[in-house]
Design a protein around this nucleic acid. Structure first.
Length: 838
RNA sequence: GGGUCCGUAGCUCAGCUGGCUAGAGCGCCGUCUUGACAUGGCGGAGGUCACAAGUUCAAGUCUUGUCGGACCCACCA
């Protein structure tokens, strides 16, 4: 084997060139391709399939995906067979909204077919942008494992899931009132609802007792629901109203009569203690309507306008009707009082419109019956960080409804079912025909098994998007048995789910529920919950930030592509590694610049190592550690401690912990002290023995190599570039990213700082400070240093004399002399003075 | 109303099972250019660890309470 020669590493670091070059190697070597059954332990990871609206892509996204990827690269180097797919979530309301806004269309003015086309087009565009972005960031995804939630494979998986649940009796159809989005004109699930606090008007409105004609005053923030009023309630113990029980009240303006009933749930302190129930204002109304079998009077259409029941107010939007009805009531002096109140309004997460309750038949998955089992699953799952568990538990404990999976929309996975036109009996598709679209394909049954009817109608609703994304582990494991896909049920359950906290109640919960139903187990062993990348003010990075801060050249500090171009992908990743698990991280361009500094420092120190290693033969035997100099032993001990720390961090997915330790070693120990000290052995060879140079070369060669490996998960490009230039010819691996993770060395980890090294560093620091005080360059060779050991004990005196060579070398002076000095060093009883001129 | 996380230098944050004379990066001030790096080196200033009480030989670290911030859940006639 050849010896190391000069100039293996170019003077200037060109990150774009290195990024290109690295990808060429990675693709040529198929480094990230998953090879099934290769005998190694498996590590599989389930990361979020992002929505297609790629225009909103910002550094926060880059942050969370990079964080998951640090772990992936670590596991790969640990020798795991890595299964790392990437998905795109391109069905469902987010995509539909994006298309509605981009093309200015809505459900009423476009055909289902055309709308689906537009969605597919946008989906493809978005996926492309994302893929470029992820590659730019260096994500080591196996792209042949790509899925998109609207592709046939995912549709097959979702439909199979539905059929399995149908056969197990875990789905049912019901036409109770459901949470409704009047903008998208579709039903929603409980998890799709957000709460908004806003100012509202609370009105006291006079109804009339049919019996006595007395005024019965109720308080409401929603007077527009008066036409839908079906009952009046008071608390059974409320003395004021005992005489009303069983009587009727007349509804103002609309004149219909409603029964007066009692309920324990009425709060006597609220308003007058009288309460109206309408079909339907909120969940309470629905409950009373069900329990007490009240009338049904619907005054709001699915599109948020008033029905004919509202008489003169029919056709108005809800807000307008509210104003007009109050006006009309005021004219008749039926509004007894009004006050402003802070109210919490339930709104659709996707449209931000207040939700209504609408009656439309829907498919539900049973959740309420399984709460305890979900809580047990939550217990079994390994949470990182562990406190995130309570978020799932809270959600499970607060469940009020079963999971409504029907959406009255266009763009989603169809339900694999048909209904008999005569009796409504359900016919389910055969599993080997999936995916099916019942809106277009004929029913597989000849006649109805129930009534013998021969006419069928396919279900036109589609499944909500979480119905598919809750299956990502099973999509990856090819549960549906799609031909030609890599990955099978042997990867299931997966090793790790990575996601942010805000979708614990949706993505995480639904995935756990599905896995519980389908396979009676967890979908993954561990879950790692990340925070958000926020802007400098600690707020979510918005679309507006992306528009507002883009300059004429198209540079935007929140745009990952811009940032990568300017600072390098490694620099952006370095920033991303700075947030501790579960914690948000404020973005700051300066921190990315710091990342770039680290990258360049690594490049330059590798160049220096290259120079110092000239003539070194990596294949030849190297001196034992015990025979090396104190400085060399010291750096190896510090490195071993760093390996231990970084490894321990990664084992609990704490990449930030590792990054910190690594940076501390790299900068503080390796660059600023170790290399600074040993380079003199090469600049002034006449003062040192061959053995000392050999010792330094061996140590430099080994420790830089370990550093590259430790940095590799964080900085995949620069580490690859240095590895290829310096180490590749001597190693039988294609890339640093398939190198073995540095081994922990127990003896070194536990070792104390070698005798004397602390002394050398203390004297070096003292010299540095004296140089600084006297305005002498740190690199200038001093005539000498004078050490005053009058106050020191014999052990120290002895050690100083023994280490005089190292001290002289570290402090970069021509000679060490002993005599009176003034500057007190950190070493007990030792003072020091520098001699600059002869 | 219940819960979780957080409150440490001007800023962003470390500080894991209590031992700290409290750290890093950025920023600031000073200073240093003949063989890796000025995209740099070295030095310096800057903190009663939100507040109060308690446990302990010892508390930034544990307990309780108060205040402030972020978020989750609930309520939402």
């Amino acid at each position: 084997m050849t010896k190391i020669v000069q100039n293996l590493i170019e003077k200037d670091y060109d990150h774009e060139g290195v990024e290109r070059e690295s990808w060429e190697i990675w693709e040529r070597e198929k480094l990230y391709d998953y090879q099934p059954d290769d005998g190694r332990k498996l590590f599989s990871i389930d990361t979020p399939p992002p929505y297609v609206s790629a225009a909103h892509l910002h550094v926060g996204h880059a942050m969370s995906y990079a964080q998951a990827e640090f772990v992936v690269r670590y596991k790969r180097m640990q020798g795991f067979n890595v299964f790392y797919p990437m998905g795109f979530d391109d069905n469902g309301l987010p995509t539909e909204r994006y298309v509605e806004q981009t093309y200015n269309v809505n459900k009423s003015n476009i055909t289902r077919e055309r709308f689906r086309e537009l969605c597919m087009e946008e989906t493809a565009k978005g996926a492309k942008t994302y893929e470029e972005m992820w590659r730019g960031l260096g994500l080591s995804v196996d792209w042949s494992l790509k899925y998109s939630t609207i592709d046939p494979h995912c549709q097959r998986t979702s439909q199979r899931s539905f059929i399995d649940l149908y056969n197990k009796g875990m789905v049912y159809r019901d036409d109770s009132p459901v949470i409704w989005d009047t903008h998208f004109e579709t039903a929603l699930a409980q998890a799709d609802v957000d709460t908004l606090t806003r100012n509202g008007q609370m009105h006291d409105i006079a109804f009339k007792s049919v019996d006595t004609g007395e005024a019965l005053v109720i308080s409401t923030t929603r007077p527009e629901l008066i036409p839908a009023c079906v009952a009046m309630y008071f608390h059974p113990k409320d003395e004021r109203y005992q005489h009303l029980e069983g009587k009727e009240a007349e509804v103002p303006l609309f004149g219909h009569k409603v029964p007066i009933r009692t309920s324990e749930e009425v709060d006597m302190e609220f308003g007058t203690g009288l309460m109206q129930v309408c079909t339907f204002g909120d969940g309470e109304d629905v409950k009373k309507w069900k329990d007490d079998k009240l009338d049904t009077r619907v005054c709001i259409n699915p599109n948020g306008t008033m029905t004919n029941l509202a008489g003169p107010f029919a056709g108005m939007k809800v807000e307008q009707a509210r104003r007009e009805i109050v006006k009309a009531l005021k004219e008749q002096e039926l509004v007894v009082g009004s006050k402003q109140v802070k109210q919490n309004v339930s709104v659709s997460e996707r449209s931000s419109q207040p939700i209504e309750f609408v009656m439309a038949p829907q498919w539900f998955i049973r959740l309420l019956d399984y709460r305890d089992e979900f809580l047990k699953r939550s217990e079994q799952l390994q949470w990182y960080p562990d406190y995130m568990k309570v978020r799932l538990d809270d959600w499970v404990n607060g469940l009020k409804y079963d999971w409504n999976i029907s959406r009255q929309r266009f763009y989603g996975v169809p339900f694999p079912i048909w209904y008999c036109k005569d009796c409504g009996n359900v016919v389910v598709a055969k599993e080997n025909t999936l995916p099916v679209d019942p809106a277009e394909q004929p029913c597989p049954a000849e006649s109805c098994g129930n009534c013998g009817g021969t006419e069928f109608e396919g279900e036109s609703d589609v499944m909500e998007t979480w119905m598919t994304s809750s299956l990502t582990p099973l999509v990856n494991a090819n549960w549906a048995g799609t031909e030609g896909r890599k990955g099978d049920m042997s990867i299931y359950p997966m090793s790790l789910r990575v996601q942010a906290f805000e979708i614990i109640r949706t993505w995480l919960f639904y995935t756990v529920a599905k896995s519980h139903f389908h396979h009676d187990g967890l979908p993954w062993r561990d879950c790692m919950i990340s925070g958000w990348g926020l802007n400098e003010q600690g707020k979510k990075i918005s679309k507006r930030d992306l528009e507002k801060f883009t300059d004429k050249e198209g540079y935007n500090r929140y745009d990952p592509h811009s940032v990568i171009q300017k600072y390098s992908a490694d620099a952006l990743r370095f920033w991303a590694a700075g947030s501790h698990l579960g914690h948000d991280l404020r973005f700051n361009e300066k921190d990315v610049r710091t990342g770039r500094k680290v990258v360049i420092k690594l490049w330059n120190v590798a160049r220096l190592c290259n120079i110092l290693l000239e003539g070194f033969n990596p294949s030849a035997p190297r001196p034992d550690l015990a025979e090396r100099s104190v400085e060399d032993r010291w750096v190896q001990i510090e490195l071993a401690k760093t390996i231990k720390t970084v490894t321990a961090g990664f084992e609990r997915y704490d990449y930030a912990y590792g990054r910190e330790a690594l940076e501390r070693f790299f900068w503080g120990v390796f660059c600023d002290n170790y290399v600074e000290i040993v380079k003199d052995r090469f600049w002034n060879p006449e003062r040192y023995s061959e053995e000392l140079r050999a010792s330094a070369q061996a140590t430099l060669w080994e420790s830089l190599r370990v550093l590259l490996a430790l940095f590799a998960p964080y900085l995949p490009f620069i580490t690859e570039a240095i590895f290829q230039r310096l180490y590749k010819p001597y190693e039988d691996i294609a890339s640093i990213h398939v190198a073995e993770w540095p081994e922990e060395v127990a003896e070194l980890e536990a070792a104390e700082t070698p005798d004397g090294m602390a002394l050398i560093l203390d004297l070096l620091n003292a010299t540095r400070e004296l140089r600084s005080q006297n305005k002498i360059s740190q690199t200038k060779v001093l005539e000498g240093i004078r050490i005053d050991m009058d106050g020191a004990d014999d052990g120290t005196k002895h050690m100083v004399q023994e280490l005089a060579g190292s001290i002289q070398s570290a402090t970069r002076c021509k000679e060490v002399v002993y005599g009176p000095a003034d500057y007190a060093t950190a070493v007990d009883g030792v003072k020091l003075e520098i001699v600059a001129e002869a």
